[in-house]
Design a protein around this nucleic acid. Sequence first.
DNA 1: GTAGATTGCTTGCTAGCGCAACCATAGCAC
DNA 2: GTGCTATGGTTGCGCTAGCAAGCAATCTAC
Lengths: 174, 174
Amino acid sequence: MTDDTTSTRHACSYETDANGVVRWSEAHADAWIGLLETHKQLTRALDAELTAQHGLSLSGLELLARLAAADDRHMHLTALAGAASLSLSRVSRIIATLEERGLVERRNCPADARAVHAQLTDGGLRLVVDAQTTHFASVQAVFFDQLDGDEIATLARVFGRFAPQAADQCDAGG
Amino acid sequence: MTDDTTSTRHACSYETDANGVVRWSEAHADAWIGLLETHKQLTRALDAELTAQHGLSLSGLELLARLAAADDRHMHLTALAGAASLSLSRVSRIIATLEERGLVERRNCPADARAVHAQLTDGGLRLVVDAQTTHFASVQAVFFDQLDGDEIATLARVFGRFAPQAADQCDAGG
DNA sequence: GTAGATTGCTTGCTAGCGCAACCATAGCAC
DNA sequence: GTGCTATGGTTGCGCTAGCAAGCAATCTAC
């Protein structure tokens, strides 16, 4: 933490003005509010592009991508929800729309009659490959190309700490 | 960028497997997917806490906080939308709900009959102060306490680059 | 002045999201 | 076997979000 802020410092990284309104130190404001704002702008742009080019939301691509990376290209809906940090109800509905487009199929799980496999179809796999090709290039252009190697390493270390398994077995771009 | 990944490297930071499925390098996956996942988990937890304790969403607090920081504690809705990166329609509706709770008032702008000032009330200011006090402590606990000074500085530099004005004139925690 | 374009805001619509309620199956205690 | 609980999934609902259409006021060109 830098010590060259002009304002009085608490033990904490924020302070209050004369009205009691709380204010971050400059570095903390840039880091936290900048994180929120950067996420908002990048995901908005990337989602719009993905929708326009492939008719997929970021969540839809993430589910398809996780299926593509899975053994035999199928997963239980609960496992998908856990991997993607989405509610089961949301996954159920996203899979329904993907199923209408023929990108996945619901199949009964032979080992558990309650469970459903979401099975990626050949057409779904083709779409994943197409969509990720353009999507990854966009993430590279809008995000990684603005960073140097040290910065990428720091972000990887920091966000890997917060979300340890997020990238595991995942080709998801979003 | 580290050079010790085990996989073949392209000029780019991602590659394709035998099926053509795209995969990030490990550092890039941790950085990008970790960013998405970290944002999702932190904002979900913080928003839930803010809703439970103060009946405010992160967006609602951000609008109130920007009003609290503004001269005379009022702003045009368009300015609020721009500052918070929200659509004008969304701001209009959020202000409507805040108005029902007596936290802000819509006032005709004397200089432009089309425009509306969102004016923070005294009760709104008190709520901002209360809500930010707990909210900032939570952000400190769940986010900054997991980072060292160098990491915070790097995040501030990086996200300040993507979202240069995001934190300006803003006491927003969300 | 007046016509047309622009700006500020509101509202109808649709999509994404999670929670809670619900149903069916599975597993466990007995 | 019979219950009781837990798990997997679906659906109703309410919330947030943005887009597009619409309205009123302003500005510009003439």
